[in-house]
Amino acid sequence: MNKTHNNKAWWLVLPMFALVAFSAIIPLMTVVNYSVQDIFDQNTAYFVGVEWYQEVLRNTRLHDSLLRQFIFSFSVLAIEIPLGILVALLMPKEANWKTSLVLILLALPLLIPWNVVGTIWQVFARGDIGLFGWAVNAMGFEYNYTANALDAWLTVLLMDVWHWTPLVALLCYSGLRAIPEAYYQAAMIDRASRWAIFRYIQLPRLKGVLVIAVLLRFMDSFMIYTEPFVLTGGGPGNATTFLSQSLTQMAVGQFDLGPAAAFSLIYFMIVLLVCWLFFTTITHMDKERQ
């Protein structure tokens, strides 16, 4: 759409800007302030420059936590995106009550509070009182997510797949619905194979929604806190302690304000950097389309 240039549009944006600035800029400045000071109490604080940043960057526990976080986020994307596309392809196309029902059932995990998601899996995966844990044990596998690091890791991953694949599936489903029927008819005439239809008609048309899906899934999996906190509490050991949990431990648990603030800013920068790359991709794609 060709937009007219009009600076008065700022008046329309102003209420939103004021509100978000209040909740974003003031707290962010507080964090910046903390990150360069050593605070003893309300009236005693010393300027320490970049000392906290250096300390955080050297902290090997945080390195481990960052590495875990990246492995987790990429595993999540590698499983949820293909699975989501597959589920979207399996969904019925007709607009009737059956389709509505499938949509609602599919969206169910998205609407459950995150701590309840943790609770559901905490119960479901237990060997003694949970169906899943019991079934896996009955099949002859040693499985105990509270004691074994690998089991805990896989359970958190499975929980996230359960929780968020529906989002990817629904995004892809709406992308698929937007493909005109004529495309499929043309493919029929050409006797295109099922794979060819997917590769040359459906996948290119899903590009837009897939970028949104990857973006949202990356952001949210990178900030994951509540679900693993309830499920495993970060354990056993530190096996499922991700960045947000390390940060919360540092800020609220140990009350190390300076290092926690420096850590916060570095954390935020990483998310921003990755998302900026995605954002550039989106705008670039929009330009190509026009």
Binding site: K3, T4, H5, N6, N7, K8, A9, W10, V13, M16, F17, V20, A24, I26, P27, L28, T30, V31, M219, F222, M223, Y225, L243, S244, Q245, L247, T248, A251, V252, L257, A260, S264, L265, Y267, F268, V271, L272, C275, W276, F279
Partner: peptide, 27 residues
């Protein structure tokens, strides 16, 4: 409309969606 700083404003806005809640906890 196009207006001064619209693109920057939009990205700044989205960047808030990317802020981990844990960062803002204490402030």
């Amino acid at each position: 409309y196009k207006f001064v700083g619209d693109k920057h404003l939009f990205f700044w806005l989205l960047s808030n969606r990317m802020a981990p809640p844990a960062v803002f906890l204490l402030p």
